[in-house]
Amino acid sequence: MQAYYLKPPNVSWGLLFPLAWTGMFLIRSGQDSHSLLSVLPGMIALSVLFGTSSMLAVAVTFEKKAKAFERLLLSPIPLYLLMLAKTSGAVLFGMFNALVPVLLGFWFADLSGADWGMAVPAVLLIAVVSTFLSLLLAILATEVFEVQTLSNFVRFPMIFLCGLFFPVSALPLFLQPISFLLPLTYGVDILHHAIGGEQLLPPSVDFSVLAGFCLLLFMLSLRSINKHWIG
């Protein structure tokens, strides 16, 4: 992991970009605590999403290019374990990224009412689901910029469709079904439960759907690796 943290794509997409968004929203919200609490879940989710996907793009692509990934595939470690180990770095990096808006949130707003027992598992599941989503894309690409570009096709629509900064119910009716097909919608909904903002579904439903997405994306990733890398 230490080899990848400070690679330029990680610094720009994984750290600077979420930091800039967080700063922008905090300044825009000013001293309005309610407004701050309603955007904080979105900022946390955004930081996790960009952190994990950037880290994974860098880690997997660099390793593929350096043939180090091939060496991992040659080891007697089961593929699922290998992928869990490989993705855990990105998950941790994404969770670490979530600290940026949380710490700034503590500075600017009153977070004493937040339910961290619900928020932390939600951040973990968001990190896991976005890591596996990025892994699916990273398997198809050979260069870091290709993964970043492909990721942007997924990441940017999710900013608008998953209720990060305004509720899904505010979207045009024809777009709302798409929101419910995206895992981030459920993660952000849990964060709204835990921190503030408008909630859509009961947390138990959100957790179950998110965990289901994690499992599904992991299985798809394994299948894809088997197909593309052990062809």
């Binding site: 080899a3 350096a66 043939k67 180090a68 091939e70 060496r71 040659l74 007697p76 089961p78 593929l79």
Partner: peptide, 22 residues
Amino acid sequence: NPKAAQHLIGVVPDESNLYPEL
């Protein structure tokens, strides 16, 4: 299962496969 006997083998590919940063 292509991985069944990987504990028995060592592989030297035609290109370097180690971590450049380590």
